[in-house]
C-alpha cells in the first residue's frame, strides 16, 4: 500500500502526453488548408444563386416593392410604347395551371405510391413503374409540352387545361416517388400493430400509413408545385400566351414564365422592367412553396 515515498521530492515529474493543439504540425496545416478549400468551394457555389437573387431584387424590386404594386400585380400587360401595366393575367394563369397540374398529379401520384410502397412493393409492375418514374424525373420538360401538344393541343387547341396537363406530367413522378418513399418508411411494426388491433388493410393504409407518411408526402407535393410553377417549356406548346385574364379553361392562357420570355426580348424599357418584376414574383412564389414544404415537413409527432 504505502510504497509511495513522501519524504523525498520526486526527481522527475510524471510524463504526460502532449494534448495541446500544435499549430505548425504537418497534420494541422493540412487540415487547415483543406478546411479553407471547402469554404472557398462552398462560397463559389453560392455566388450564382446570390447574384441571381441580387439582380432580381435590384432590377425587379423597384416595381414590385413600390406604390405601384397593385397595378403590377393586377394590371394587364402593356402593348408597345404603353407605360405602366402589370402581370396580373400571367400571375393568375400560372396559379390556375399549377392548380390543374396539382389536381391531376396529386391523387394519381399518391394512389400509385400506395400501390408501390405498401401493397406490392416488389412486384414486377412496381419495379418497372418505379424505374419509369425515376426516368421521368429527369425527363426534359419540353418533351412534356410536345407530348401534350401531340395528344391534346392538335385536337382541342391551346388551353389552360393542356398547360395544366403538361405540368401534371412533370409533377407526377416527383409526387409519386416522394409519397412512396414516405410511406415505405413507415415501420413494419407500426403496420403490424394496426393489424394486431383488427384493422383491415384499407384501415391500416388510411389510419396509419397515410397519416404517418403525411409530412413526407406534403414535402414532395410542395416541391413538385414549386418546380412546376417555374416551368416555361411545357407551356410554350400547350397554353401559349394571352394578354387578358383567363375566363375559360379551354382558351390560351398567360403564365409568368412565358411572360418573362416574351417581354425580356422586347426593345421597350417598360416591358423589360416588367419581365424582371415577373421574375422576382415567380421566385417569390417558388420560395413560398418551398418554405411551406419546410413547415409542413416538420413532423407533428
Amino acid at each position: 500500500m504505502s510504497d509511495i515515498d513522501l519524504t523525498t521530492r520526486a526527481i522527475e515529474p510524471p510524463r504526460l502526453p502532449r494534448l495541446e493543439h500544435q499549430t505548425f504540425e504537418i497534420r494541422a496545416l493540412k487540415s487547415g488548408l483543406l478546411t479553407w478549400l471547402t469554404w472557398i468551394a462552398a462560397g463559389l457555389a453560392a455566388i450564382p444563386l446570390l447574384s441571381v437573387i441580387y439582380m432580381l431584387i435590384f432590377k425587379g424590386g423597384s416595381r414590385l416593392f413600390s406604390s405601384s404594386i397593385g397595378e403590377v400585380l393586377t394590371g394587364l400587360p402593356p402593348a408597345g410604347f404603353e407605360m405602366g401595366g402589370g402581370i396580373g393575367p400571367a400571375l393568375v394563369g400560372t396559379l390556375v395551371m399549377v392548380g390543374i397540374g396539382a389536381l391531376i398529379s396529386i391523387p394519381i401520384g399518391i394512389l400509385a405510391a400506395i400501390y408501390l410502397g405498401v401493397l406490392e412493393p416488389s412486384s414486377r409492375i412496381s419495379t418497372n413503374a418505379r424505374f419509369l418514374a425515376k426516368v421521368l424525373t429527369g425527363f426534359p420538360s419540353i418533351l412534356a409540352g410536345v407530348f401534350v401538344y401531340a395528344v391534346i393541343v392538335i385536337h382541342f387547341g391551346y388551353s389552360a387545361m393542356a398547360g395544366g396537363i403538361a405540368l401534371a406530367v412533370l409533377m407526377l413522378p416527383t409526387v409519386l416517388l416522394a409519397a412512396e418513399e414516405a410511406m415505405s418508411q413507415v415501420p413494419q411494426r407500426m403496420k403490424d400493430a394496426a393489424y394486431g388491433m383488427g384493422c383491415t388493410r384499407t384501415q391500416v393504409i388510411l389510419k396509419v400509413v397515410l397519416p404517418t407518411g403525411l409530412t413526407g408526402i406534403l414535402t414532395g407535393v410542395m416541391l413538385a408545385i414549386a418546380g412546376a410553377a417555374g416551368e416555361s417549356a411545357p407551356l410554350l406548346f400547350t397554353a401559349l400566351f394571352s394578354n387578358y385574364y383567363i375566363s375559360e379553361l379551354n382558351e390560351p392562357t398567360a403564365s409568368l414564365s412565358i411572360l418573362i420570355y416574351n417581354f425580356s426580348g422586347m426593345p421597350f424599357q417598360n416591358q423589360i422592367e416588367l419581365a424582371w418584376t415577373a421574375s422576382l414574383a415567380l421566385v417569390l412564389i417558388v420560395l413560398m412553396f418551398n418554405i411551406l414544404a419546410r413547415i409542413l415537413g416538420r413532423s407533428k409527432y
Binding site: 411494426r189 407500426m190 403490424d192 393489424y195 388491433m197 396509419v208 397519416p211
Partner: peptide, 26 residues
C-alpha cells in the same frame, strides 16, 4: 378474430400520434 384476441409486440410500436389517440385508436 384480432379484435377479440389482441397482441403486444416485442418492440414497442406506438403509432406516431398523441398518447390519447394511440389508446383511443381501437
Amino acid at each position: 378474430v384480432r379484435r377479440y384476441i389482441g397482441m403486444v409486440f416485442q418492440q414497442p410500436n406506438p403509432f406516431s400520434m398523441s398518447i390519447y389517440d394511440n389508446v383511443a385508436f381501437g
